[in-house]
Design a protein around this nucleic acid. Sequence first.
RNA 1: GCUCGCGUGGUGUAGCCAGGUCCAUCAUUACGGGUUUUCAUCCCGUCGACCCGGGUUCGAAUCCCGGCGCGAGCACCA
Length: 502
Amino acid sequence: MREVLEREAPHLLEKREVKARREGLPDLKNAEKGKVVLRFAPNPNGPLSFGHARGLVINSTYREMYDGEFILRFDDTDTKVKPPMLEAYDVIQEETEWLTGRKPDRVVFASDRIDEYYNHAHTMLEQGFGYVCRCTAEEFKEFRISKTNCPCRSQPISDNLVFWKRMLDGKFKPGDAVVRVKTDMQLKNPALRDWPALRLQDTALHPHPRPEIGSKYVVWPLLDFQSAVEDHLQGVTHIIRGKDLMDSTRKQTLLYEHFGWTYPETMYWGRVKVHEWGGFSTSQMRSDIESGTYDGWDDPRLPTLAGLRKRGTQAKALRNFWMELGITQKDISVPLATLYSHNTKVIDDDAPRLAFVRHAAEFSLEGEHPDKLTIPVHPNHSEMGHRTWDLKGGQVWLESDDLEKMDLRLKEFADVALHDRIARVESMERSDQRPIVHWLPHNTSSEALVMGTKDNTLLHIEGRLERHKYTPGTIVQLERVGYAILIDATTLLLCHENLQDD
RNA sequence: GCUCGCGUGGUGUAGCCAGGUCCAUCAUUACGGGUUUUCAUCCCGUCGACCCGGGUUCGAAUCCCGGCGCGAGCACCA
């Protein structure tokens, strides 16, 4: 068959290659191995959220694919509306390393680069493609809507330079003056018309949280200007970001044309909502934490990286999750089950099994039975060893919900019949089809607490936990309950939201 | 309103740029079955989709036009 095709229609064979399922991310346009520079630029107004992980995963994966460079940049140029949080700078760097598996090649603080932005603003005014606009925001909005030039647009360069100096010297109040990029007020897209590049901020009242910056500057660049200039300065070759920034690309391209620069290649992803979480914003979480609604940024109910990590979500699972979504521009809504499925695949092989008996009821064991029991740590991995239970004293704990049936098989142990508070051993061998339940001997267990989340509330389940020597942070599987991470020896947190129990 | 973008099973995703091998990929969910002395893991199976209408073409998920739906931007936020 293949020979015939090769002879008669070789093009059909080539097509098959093309249609094979693509592995991983699509190729970058105009990318040369070793010469790709990517960046991820969050506002450090809080720790990273679930959504930020996409930017980190996609950009850092391309860094690996192309043996390029990855920059982590703090876009911390707003001190009032979305003020940075001092602790976030370190937290974000640590979280970035955790998620991507290595440190960024460069870390850039926009607030350290203000002089660079000033220089470019000055160039812009000097060369006449920017101007100082003294209209109010409302006045300018009218001009934007009516496609008419604002009076400031035509003032001479010398005036612009004078006004610029007065801005820098603090002679204007916030709102009194702004530096705009001259584009064209006739542009079809209203968002692009003479967009603002730098504005004034009252940094006496709203100082920058970094002590070395504080109230040092009153003129601050806006995102579109700062980001555009910095991308050029850092030699960024590819920008991959949310499609909400599409107009940013268009604005910035106009600025690049003025400067005679070439804009990087861009790609976008759409909006992602997680069904169970709905909408969260960093500022909203911040105020909810301050008001005590949540325990902190690592509250497991919160869609933060810290919260996910605390409940045992693995970096690898997050990476797989975002890689699977890829970079389509579709706006999507995904269920947490998808993330949990990835996480389960990552953790199961390494999760030692432990018994946790919920709402435990105590029984006395009667009848012939050994006083010791040895069972595997992991049913699929004998190399993980075994655990030994001490049955001396004959006191055992069973789960309240399992007591509806009087005849039960204690897992890995014996068939028993329940009567009052007595469990009589009927057979060590499995003798019938009675249900198999997990259980614990009194001597090998302690009281414990398992926490979980459900519908944005915290669950607390009390019970008996098998004795163990695992350290906090270990992820175990509680048999018949679910995966959980150790907070301390007798406190655990369920990794995945359990939809059917309790 | 203006501007931009996106529409493949319940949820995601591949295929679309370079039309035929697509009665459409893979994953997830649900359901069923198997392995297993866990309601876990693993394995097998089943259900299930090209937004609508025209056009081009021998042939359209793929190209063109129109409609509809959804989303984003139009901040002196990022």
